[in-house]
Design a protein around this nucleic acid. Structure first.
Length: 270
DNA sequence: CTCCTATCCTGCGAGC
DNA sequence: TGCTCGCAGGATAGGA
């Protein structure tokens, strides 16, 4: 579930929890790998360092110390929570112990998450190819239009391509295309400058609203506090196949596009 | 280049 | 009720 909005909400939670810059005292890795092997020896080098700030890049979280950062990706079902010492749950894979008794737990049933280390964002293999942040000034109608020029790939697949723009996953791609009134199947190169501008503006608007509402909680997603998000109540098309469009009452259509469930209103979206 | 499939996993809801 | 099946927020690799 975690797309940019959800990861940003977790970042804000962790930043608050870690705002006193506690020293990391112990890292417990309950298994050797998640989606990929965890570099245990590298990770252990962070013991004794203070967490100075929590950054988000795309859907990755970076816990920065003076020497580098611990890197976390939530995959599909990953959650971080503040957990008292006796709180150990099924599918907890990582415990971070800090001074003062603070303990963070990473739970990820499907193990699509990632945990590792970063020393340089510009050269790290998972970070170096990432496109612009959707909420940054770097991502504009003009920049999107330029990066889609000459591409025949479906627009929704392009929006979910992390080289074009990061952090927009399946839910928000569907929702943003609906809000911009553009069909997901539209050929990327056929997008007019005007439409690119509308799409970018809707992506920003929807992501900001989703962050304000604490993200979308469908099944697993939760804040570090255990709270749920509320944005799932605002879905216009996602997971609404056959239901009436909230704008024009036409039944919402669905199909698989680029291997992902895609939803749109056949009347509102051109 | 584009698109499609498979893969990494567990859990859940639908349908029989 | 209990079983199997298909699908789920992500990211990548490989092949047609």
């Amino acid at each position: 579930m975690p797309e940019l909005a959800e990861v940003e909400v977790v970042r804000q939670d962790l930043e608050k929890i870690l705002s006193h810059q506690p020293k990391l005292l112990k890292v417990e890795l309950m298994r050797a790998d998640l989606r990929e092997p965890m570099p245990a020896a590298e990770i252990q080098k962070f013991v004794g360092l203070k967490i100075e700030r929590v950054e988000r890049r795309a859907k990755y979280l970076l816990l920065w110390t003076e020497k580098g950062a611990l890197l976390s990706h939530l995959g599909m079902t990953g959650t971080w929570r503040e957990a008292p010492p006796e709180d150990r749950r099924l599918h907890d894979h990582i415990y971070l112990h800090f001074e003062g008794g603070l303990r963070l737990a990473f739970r990820d049933p499907r193990r699509f998450g990632v945990f590792g280390v970063v020393y340089d964002v510009r050269t790290h293999k998972s970070l170096r190819h990432l496109g612009p942040e959707p909420l940054s000034g770097e991502f504009t109608g003009e920049s999107l239009w330029r990066s889609l020029r000459g591409k025949s790939i479906a627009l929704k697949a392009a929006v979910m391509d992390q080289k074009i723009v990061v952090g927009v996953g399946n839910i928000y791609a569907n929702e943003a295309l609906f809000a911009a009134k553009i069909k997901p199947q539209k050929k990327s190169s056929a997008l007019t400058r005007e439409q690119a501008k509308a799409l970018v503006s809707q992506i920003k608007k929807i992501l900001k609203k989703a962050i304000r509402e604490g993200g979308s909680s469908i099944s697993d997603f939760a804040h570090a506090s255990g709270d749920s998000g509320k944005f799932q109540n605002s879905f216009q098309v996602y997971d609404r196949a056959g239901e009436k469009c909230r704008v024009c009452k036409a039944p919402i259509k669905s199909a698989v596009l680029g291997g992902r469930s895609t939803y749109w209103c056949p009347r509102c979206q051109k």
